[in-house]
């Protein structure tokens, strides 16, 4: 446990060692504020539905860029050879890196606080729904993070890791979307719909917390973290 925290703290600090993190956060905030305000004035409703509506797609590009560095860079630089010959277990390293990326995502989401403030100022929103939506964002974001972290361990090139992560996340997202579901036989529709990363998010964005959705996200996170540990334990790379 102590090792996990030590690694998480170091990884989290590393994000802010380069100016890229600040540029990245600024760009993210500009983007979501722009997207939100645009729909806000178009629809003119004091809620955050549209915000939670586009988050799965913003995350698609945002989250893989948070995780792409975590393994790939260490593989390329060779620093993994020091890290993985310390008396730590592979699963501790995986969890440490995952937690660091999760806290970073948390910080980014927290910085969008101006949007609920604005909504609260202009109208009388359903706060339960907004909190529920943010919780959904975190769960979905954590699932994307687990996928991205796993993808990062598959390559020593950050760009390759980024593209791989987007590919896996996209695949996991679209299997549940209507434009994919109309292509599959009717019997499989509920199955694919359940598998989709976005499906479970939609209901949370509407303010409904269902244990099946929680279970779904926790399973996705668990499976990809496990695959990550497995990949690292069975490494044959330099």
């Amino acid at each position: 446990m102590k090792n996990i925290i030590t690694i998480a703290r170091k990884e989290f600090r590393t994000y802010f060692e380069s100016p890229i993190a600040y540029i990245f956060i600024t760009a993210f905030l500009l983007l979501v504020n722009f997207l939100y305000l645009w729909t806000f004035f178009l629809v003119g409703q004091a809620d955050m539905r549209s915000f939670f509506g586009f988050m799965p797609f913003v995350f698609l590009f945002l989250v893989p860029s948070i995780t792409m560095r975590l393994w790939a860079e260490e593989r390329k630089m060779g620093t993994l050879e020091v890290l993985l010959t310390l008396p730590v277990q592979e699963k501790e390293v995986v969890l440490g890196k995952f937690i660091a990326s999760f806290v970073f995502l948390l910080v980014m989401l927290a910085l969008t606080f101006n949007i609920p403030l604005l909504v609260g100022f202009l109208g009388d929103p359903d706060w339960g729904m907004i909190i529920c939506g943010y919780l959904g964002c975190l769960l979905m974001g954590a699932s994307y993070l687990a996928i991205g972290l796993f993808a990062s361990a598959l390559s020593d090139n950050q760009i390759v890791a980024f593209i791989l992560a987007i590919a896996i996340c996209t695949a996991m997202l679209i299997v549940g979307e209507w434009f994919f579901l109309i292509l599959v036989p009717d019997v499989f529709v509920p199955f694919f719909n359940y598998l989709g990363l976005g499906t479970h998010f939609e209901s949370m964005g509407r303010g409904v917390i269902d244990t099946r959705d929680l279970l779904y996200y926790i399973s996705v996170i668990g499976v990809f973290l496990y695959l990550n540990v497995y990949t690292v334990e069975n490494r044959n790379w330099v």
Binding site: T14, E17, S18, M77, G78, T79, L80, E81, V82, T85
Partner: peptide, 9 residues
């Protein structure tokens, strides 16, 4: 290790 890998930052 060979080439002494360290965290540059």
């Amino acid at each position: 290790p060979e080439n002494c890998p360290l965290y540059p930052e």
